[in-house]
Computed example of a mutant assay.
Amino acid sequence: MEKRNIPIGLPSMGVEEWEACREPIESGWITQGPKVKEFETNFALRHNVKHAFAVSNCTTALHLALVASGVEAGDEVIVPAFTWVSTANAVKYCHATPIFVDINIETFNIDMEKIAEKVTSKTKAIIPVHLFGLCADVAAIKRRFPNLKIVEDGACAAGSALNDIPAGGLGDIGCFSFHPRKSVTTGEGGMLTTNDDEIAVRLDRLRNHGASISEEQRHHGPKPYILSAFEMVGYNYRMTDIQGAIGVVQLKKLDSFIDERQKWADFYKEELKDVKWLKTPEVPEGYKHGWQSYVTYVDESIAPMKRNDIMELLQQKGISTRPGTHAVHMLEVYAKMYNIKPNDYPEAFKADQFSMSIPMHNKMVKEDYEYIVQALKAI
């Protein structure tokens, strides 16, 4: 086949998103306002939760979730060793200690059987990550550790579900990302979800400097001299109304985006089944995968070449790939800070070294998928 150029990810946006920006721009209300509120309302409805709060990105969502959960200096928070660095960074923002737990290499998610040995009297929360769009088994974690706060890192998991319960409503607080590589995007942006009314009040105030009166309430109220009251130290983690307007449009497309990705996940699964050195992802019964990424595993013991060489070869053919993500315990900052060795978390180490994400996004066409399959089979 003729050489193609296929990026690892590409946002699916068009005229509707462009037009959606008109209203906030023309009205002059471009900071957090009515469009953000509409986006939050629709997101909460789609994910079957009582409250949703839009923020600047998923990292700030994680930070606020931990603060609202009472995490502070001296506390410990359980995080998987294989995840994007922000999961651990958010713990450090609270002056707490991230305690790494190895993963299950079959799902790339935190290994349930290894959490218990890391829980101590200092443990305040657990952050299960729904990596690549596959939910972690939050229900089992809650049953095992009912006294710990569960903060879902659902950066990749908009639209994902476990036993028909959407991500974001499985734990105490859910955190989502709208980065351009996610299924739906607002450029940058994040969302917090919760069913806890008290936590909801704290999240709403914390994202807006700690103010107990929102900007919208203040500007539209009958008493223009009233300023916000501040009863806590908060942060400026708000989303703009331009982003909110885009999010409203993108959210309407979420389910069709996931359905399309599921179709091509099935295609990859079938077409690559005879490529014995390449393990494709499994979806356990009861799980709805959001397919933020399609992450495979290269078995170098039988592969014709090393993973990195395969990735370079595919790049030469115009096919972009990436490692699934990184093992946080192997990053210099955490390895030095806690004197961690790569093999201290062997499954995370393997995922770091041998995972390979191949292109899957809603701008791809049939010929792209066929070209990728052909290239992999030809190696």
Rank of each mutant, 00 (worst) to 15 (best):
N89E: 12
A90K: 11
V91P: 13
Y93L: 07
H95A: 07
A96K: 09
T97R: 13
P98C: 01
V101W: 13
E106P: 00
F108R: 07
D111Q: 06
E113D: 15
K114R: 13
K114H: 04
A116S: 05
E117D: 13
S121L: 14
S121C: 11
S121D: 15
T123W: 12
A125V: 15
I126H: 07
I127D: 14
P128E: 07
H130D: 15
H130A: 12
L131C: 12
G133V: 00
L134N: 06
L134K: 12
C135N: 09
A136S: 15
A139F: 14
A140Y: 10
A140E: 13
A140M: 10
I141L: 03
K142C: 03
K142R: 15
R144D: 02
F145E: 07
L148T: 03
L148F: 06
I150T: 04
I150L: 10
A157G: 09
A157R: 09
G159R: 09
L162P: 04
L162H: 13
N163E: 12
N163Q: 12
D164Q: 04
I165L: 03
I165P: 02
P166E: 00
P166F: 10
G171E: 14
I173S: 09
G174Q: 12
G174M: 11
T186D: 01
G187A: 04
I199H: 00
A200K: 11
A200L: 07
A200S: 12
V201A: 07
R202A: 02
L203N: 08
D204H: 10
R205L: 03
L206H: 06
R207F: 09
H209K: 10
H209I: 05
S212P: 03
I213C: 01
I213M: 05
